[in-house]
Amino acid sequence: MESVLINGTKLFYSINKGSIKKPLILYLHGGPGDACIPLTKKFNATLEKDFTFVNLEQRGCGLSYYPFSKSEELSVQTILEDIYQFVLYLLVQGKQNKIILMGHSWGSVLGILFIKEHPEVVSKYIGVGQVVNMSKNIELQKEYLNKTGQGDRIDSLDFINDPVSSSLTLTKKIVSTGGSLYGKKNYTKLILPFVFSKDYSIKDLVHRIKGSNQSIIAFWEELLEINLESITEFAMPVLFCEGRHDYHVPSILAAEYFSSINSSKRLVWFENSAHFPQWEEPEKFNFEITAFVNTL
């Protein structure tokens, strides 16, 4: 575990420093606010054999928690600026020119926007549970819930006057039907690694919950406006890792978006996963990441 002061905020991250000369992967967690160092340490540790693997806990999240103040003008751009300064720091520390960027869910929004803003510091991009268009995302969530018979009271949700609460309600329903973690109706599998983590104290566990809650309040409304469909050309190869059964962020949207990309690209399906292929099928995921990065 390490920490660094970025844009006036102390940010924590995990890194396997023994392999500092190996290709550098920066992992951007989902959420907003879902810091996940214990999960990547448990399920993706084998990547440390071939790479310097860094997992950043974004401002106000997890180990990087602090209470957001009303005077802060937080936006997606705020996090992008944090990431940029952190990337520059990593490159200097590792004496490298570029990173490999990996973003999951909310992190995949940050990832696409980042590689468009700063292609000069990224050699390859990996989108996991790639977000594309949040408006279409919501409509497909509704369709899925109706097909599974879980669509009761969906029509009563007020997306005009209360879009954040309505969207979160949909997502909770998706989780309870197994459309988020394949074959599971809760997140127990993803919670236990935090409970037994040596990196998280009880206080840190509380901070993670608080960090998630305040990040949703700060960023979710802006997230609902995201539409990346017009961004179809990239300066580096891109890989999408998609769970076949993902209805949390419906993978069909990622597949359609992938087909429109005019740059070097690859799409890998995970047949026994939903929204978290990196933790639902970690062995295959770690293999595919290594294969993609090692491809010239």
Rank of each mutant, 00 (worst) to 15 (best):
80 L>H: 09
80 L>W: 07
82 D>S: 15
82 D>V: 15
83 I>G: 06
83 I>V: 14
84 Y>I: 04
85 Q>P: 01
85 Q>I: 05
85 Q>W: 00
86 F>Q: 01
86 F>C: 04
86 F>P: 02
87 V>H: 04
88 L>G: 01
89 Y>N: 03
91 L>V: 15
91 L>Y: 15
92 V>G: 10
93 Q>Y: 09
93 Q>H: 06
93 Q>C: 08
95 K>T: 07
95 K>H: 12
95 K>F: 06
97 N>L: 13
99 I>E: 11
100 I>K: 00
100 I>M: 03
103 G>I: 14
104 H>R: 10
106 W>R: 03
107 G>F: 07
111 G>F: 01
112 I>T: 05
117 E>S: 14
118 H>R: 04
119 P>I: 11
119 P>T: 12
120 E>Q: 13
121 V>G: 03
121 V>Q: 05
122 V>Q: 02
124 K>Y: 13
124 K>E: 13
124 K>V: 13
125 Y>F: 15
126 I>Y: 04
128 V>D: 01
128 V>L: 08
128 V>Q: 00
131 V>A: 00
132 V>L: 10
132 V>T: 14
133 N>M: 09
134 M>I: 04
135 S>V: 12
135 S>A: 14
136 K>T: 03
137 N>W: 10
138 I>Y: 02
138 I>S: 10
139 E>P: 00
141 Q>W: 03
141 Q>D: 10
142 K>H: 08
143 E>P: 09
147 K>H: 11
148 T>E: 06
148 T>Q: 09
153 R>S: 15
153 R>K: 13
154 I>D: 08
158 D>W: 07
159 F>P: 03
162 D>P: 03
163 P>F: 07
163 P>A: 11
164 V>Q: 06
164 V>L: 00
165 S>T: 07
165 S>C: 06
165 S>P: 01
167 S>H: 10
168 L>G: 00
169 T>I: 14
169 T>D: 08
169 T>H: 13
174 I>T: 01
175 V>F: 10
177 T>W: 05
179 G>I: 04
179 G>N: 06
184 K>T: 02
